[in-house]
Design a protein around this nucleic acid. Structure first.
Lengths: 246, 246
DNA sequence: CCTGTGTTTTTTGTATACATAAGAGTATAA
DNA sequence: TTATACTCTTATGTATACAAAAAACACAGG
């Protein structure tokens, strides 16, 4: 079909973009740990390209805040402090509420339908152990609300803020006890948007993010505690790359 | 003084960053027009560096959305549609209000003092024709509010959003009729924050941004009308670089 | 055992080289 | 005149080369 032809036509991706997406994923998934150095030659060999695309990808990661440059030293994976996360969540809370209120006014019937399905799918999955799918559906749910705002800038910013905590998402979704509450919250949000009730939508989304916030912060603290225990016990911590940077 | 030593120590800036800032300024000030191509060799010669730093700077501009890449064709300066600007202003309005409310709670006496001075300085300048200084003071006023939020992520996003319209700022500040109103608005905002009155602060900032919005949109429409008149009259429009891109 | 110094290695920052795609221009044929 | 094929130019995309800074190391001296 012509769709395929189009796909082939758009198939061209500069190496720098491939590298960018690869590194980005690796950082957000935690495969590259905070503090770990990104050495150009090493990455170039590993990915089978020259330093040039690597460097250009790093420039983008730099602007996105996923890596930090140390002059004449190169890039290291940015570490997120608890303060950073609180800041991100504070902004995200405001913008998620904004998006929800806008969705109340602007959502289309098709998107409303999609929102419903996403909610239902979450409900179906909530008692399974398929955390990856669960995370995807959760993303989908919010994506629909974003799309309903018809504000591309808002969507971009919200996606970016959300991705900042991607590393912790799976972590806290493993707390199965919260699934029921998440499900309820989704339903409340859906209902509020369906009715066009901005006040309820705002309140529900606020609660939703607050709960997420608490869960993520708890997960982080748990995670850090484990890390400390590990390094305390055996000095030669399992991995070299785990080193925090100054 | 030791401040100077420190300055010298931090004096090192990779060429890519110099180029980045240079190009960025040029775009935001309108020296590089929307649709204009950024050709690497040309820029390299002009700035006296090789293509490498130019390319790395372009990668950052790309992520920031200030340029758009066309595959195997290079970068062109992104053009802002009216919809884009409305989107930006919509998000900015929400976040400026958020910042104002946070400032009500968290502002320190020193920052409050700075806010007062910035307001007063604006008042002093408002009847002069020094639009550049006026713009700077206006920036300063908002910067103080941002600083008071103690939320670095919010500050970064707000700065970015504000810069998106930098190209139009001088334009609309030339409308001297609005200066008195701007001055009043600044005072209202200052007073609300001083009192810690979130409701008033929110309302005042909302009005402030709404007015700015109207002024900027008016300036753009005026600007575009002029452009059209120009190109309509003499087919060979004065500049090659003015060409819009597809 | 620690400390300071000179040397080597590694890695970045920048420049340049080379292959290829896209576009412009040109000549030729209908 | 218009269309088409062919060349030629230009600019990008990627790889490589080279200089210089920083880190790692070794070694002499206290």
């Amino acid at each position: 079909m012509s769709q395929d032809i189009n796909a082939v036509m758009n198939e061209y991706l500069p190496l720098r973009d491939v590298v960018f997406q690869t590194l980005r994923q690796a950082i957000l998934r935690g495969e590259l740990e905070p503090g770990e150095r990104l050495m150009e030659i090493h990455l170039a060999n590993r990915l089978g390209v020259s330093r040039t695309p690597i460097r250009e990808a790093i420039r983008k990661l730099e602007l996105e805040g996923l890596v930090v440059m140390i002059p004449r030293r190169g890039a290291i994976v940015a570490s997120i402090t608890e303060k950073d996360l609180k800041d991100v969540l504070e902004v995200r809370r405001t913008l998620e509420i904004m998006a929800g209120e806008m969705a109340c006014e602007r959502i289309t019937p098709e998107l409303l339908e999609q929102l419903k399905s996403a909610g239902e799918e979450f409900r179906r999955l909530k008692d399974t152990n398929d955390f990856t799918s669960l995370a995807e559906v959760d993303v989908k749910f919010h994506d629909v609300i974003y799309a309903a705002t018809d504000n591309q800038r808002l969507i971009t910013i919200l996606n970016n803020l959300r991705e900042q905590m991607y590393r912790y998402r799976l972590e806290y979704l493993k707390d199965t006890g919260s699934h029921e509450r998440l499900n309820t919250e989704h339903y409340e949000i859906y209902e509020a948007i369906r009715k066009g009730d901005k006040v309820s939508a705002s309140a529900a989304i606020g609660r939703h993010i607050d709960n997420q916030r608490d869960a993520i912060l708890a997960a982080i603290r748990e995670h850090e505690k484990e890390e400390n225990d590990k390094t305390d016990k055996n000095g030669k911590s399992g991995r070299i790359k785990g080193r925090k940077a100054e």
